[in-house]
Amino acid sequence: MAATTTQVEHSDQSPASAAGDQIWNVPNALSMARLGLAFFVGILIEFQQFMPALFVFVVAASTDFVDGWWARKFNQVTKLGRVLDPFVDKIIITAALIALVGCAGSGIDAWMVTVIVGREFLVTSIRAMVEGKGGDFSARSLGKWKMLFQCAAVVSSLLLLDGVTDAVWLVWTTSVLIWLAVLMTVASGADYVIQAVRLARNAS
């Protein structure tokens, strides 16, 4: 009878709930690897190794798609992964941008990075509050566009600093991309605030 009860208890656990309780799997391992690469990018920029930093940054940023695809494809979406993945995304961008601020001619100003980092703190705090109450605060399209322009700005700035091509048009390209990144950062931050207010009103 005890064995039967144990079997029933185990059968009640769905694959999704079992996956959600896992800690180490391929997507989370990739996220941890990306975290290490993010710090490596910052170090390379500090030592003015711009082309190696560009290569490592592209690898780190591109694996974001891989771990997300793997988690959905093989049902390995976990509670840790839902927190770790966006956290690592923020570290990849902020580590590169903060390091680039200290490089003369990068085209990236300190106030721009302050806006970007401030938005990340705001959205992270709101997400923790909403999801802590059981709400859904998934990524939105503006946030994805924000990430795209931020990555493009980092790549353009690193190419500019490395001097591999004509700097005239690249200066303008970097300037346009970082301004678009800042504008999308502000817009996506406002979008998340509006979403949080709506969720709070619906919950009350």
Rank of each mutant, 00 (worst) to 15 (best):
L159H: 07
A61V: 04
A110M: 14
T63F: 04
S125V: 06
V164E: 03
G107N: 08
F40E: 07
S11K: 12
G189N: 05
F149S: 10
L122S: 09
W111M: 12
N202T: 07
L44E: 15
S14M: 11
T124F: 10
W24T: 04
S17D: 15
T114A: 15
R72W: 05
M184R: 03
L122Q: 01
V113C: 06
Q48F: 10
I116C: 09
I194D: 05
F39R: 05
T114I: 14
S106F: 09
T124D: 12
R34Y: 00
F57D: 13
A190C: 08
G143Y: 10
M112W: 13
G68F: 04
V176R: 04
A181P: 05
Q150Y: 01
A71R: 12
Y192R: 09
L84T: 00
W111E: 11
S188W: 01
A95M: 14
L183T: 14
F137P: 00
A203G: 04
S138R: 15
G105P: 10
G20C: 05
Q76W: 06
W69M: 09
I194H: 13
I43L: 15
A139H: 07
L159T: 04
G68I: 02
V66N: 07
T165I: 11
T63Q: 03
R201S: 09
A153C: 07
F65Y: 13
L35C: 01
